[in-house]
Design a protein around this nucleic acid. Structure first.
Lengths: 208, 208
DNA sequence: CCTACCGATCGGTAGG
DNA sequence: CCTACCGATCGGTAGG
């Protein structure tokens, strides 16, 4: 959802790339640079250099450095949430859904490793209000996992002594930690990681 | 393990605090500031202000900003590792040890939340060589968990289809994620979190 | 998008 | 620890 600063219209006649396309490039480069150097460690100069434009020219597309980070994180979060909500909406009992969400979320994270890292690492570089704006008041991400575990328990699929809140935080932790050690082309494929994790977790939850 | 810059000896006669004590204050303040603003977002000016000295004066105690971060992270890591190694050395079968390590590690992290956060968040602000120097070539932290799961499996305590490497990464993730949501005085006590997590994990691992 | 610029701040140092 | 300082870089802006 690009939202460039709506300053003035371009005047020159020789522009090669339309504004939207250039914004997409800026978005991608910013994601990479924030990933490489962290938000505070990255400078607009770094971003401009890689795009081949001058630093001041970035302000044709953005309002501020912080806004740029917000755009990146908001978009990454939106896509990730969309993914797990879709997975959780498919047919099946709560535990089957949980399995699909775990596997699908890990696959999604691994496919978008750079953006995911920026989201999970630079979120707190944003002021609290903007963090809340992205996460939603009740932490949409967590809610998906919490709802599934709660429903599974209500259906008698989960042991009595399991606290759905703590269990869902444990699950979220193991899953979200993956970006810290996963390397594309490494020892494990995302699907294999997801299935092993799901096995381990479901086995820990289920009633005998 | 304070390691102040060994510049010159103090000359003045009116100094109130010995060098070691002042270094400890610097260390504590730096940990707090790095926690509040992140390494890149924190300035030596911030640290000096809180200590009530001038920025340039910090260089009586440190060599560089990066060295200061290194000292903080290295010490936090050392203490954390010491804690879990001690727990893993106590008597019991591998699964009992794993339980103790999980609970004890969560308690330790929650008791040292600020330092833990700096360690887990700012590690990558250090150059790769210094990261390796802290973690050790084979990632001492991970090894403790991996060894326990591997031994438990060798003893036939763990299901055949569990991959110790993936299982230990899943465990480490759920445990290390705690600093992201734990709040002192909140709904759960560290011990309770640890025991619930251990229940969930061990139940996921054990052979029938 | 470029030109040309600003005030503020950064980590760090010489010398005492 | 302070005085006094440096070169470099920061995010951002006016005007076109």
């Amino acid at each position: 959802m690009p939202q460039p600063a709506g300053r003035a219209q371009r005047r020159g006649g020789g522009s090669r790339k339309p504004r939207e396309e250039r914004w997409a490039e800026l978005f991608a480069v910013a994601t990479d640079i924030f990933h490489e150097k962290g938000y505070e460690g990255a400078s607009l100069q770094d971003i401009a250099d890689r795009l081949g434009m001058l630093k001041g020219s970035l302000y044709y597309y953005i309002h501020s450095k912080e806004d740029l980070l917000f755009e990146v994180i908001n978009e990454v979060h939106r896509q990730g949430l969309e993914n797990i909500v879709a997975l959780a909406s498919q047919p099946g009992d709560p535990l089957q859904k949980l399995r699909n969400v775990i596997v699908g979320h890990i696959e999604h994270m691994c496919r978008h490793l750079t953006g995911t890292t920026v989201f999970l690492h630079e979120m707190e570089s944003l002021p609290p209000e903007r963090q809340a704006e992205i996460l939603g008041g009740e932490h949409a991400y967590r809610s998906v996992f919490l709802d599934l575990v709660s429903k599974a328990k209500a259906d008698g699929l989960v042991r009595d002594d399991i606290d759905p809140k703590l269990a869902s935080l444990a699950i979220l932790g193991s899953v979200n930690w993956v970006y810290r050690w996963f390397r594309p082309g490494g020892e494990f494929t995302p699907r294999h990681i997801g299935e092993q994790f799901a096995d381990l977790i479901l086995r820990g939850l289920v009633a005998d």
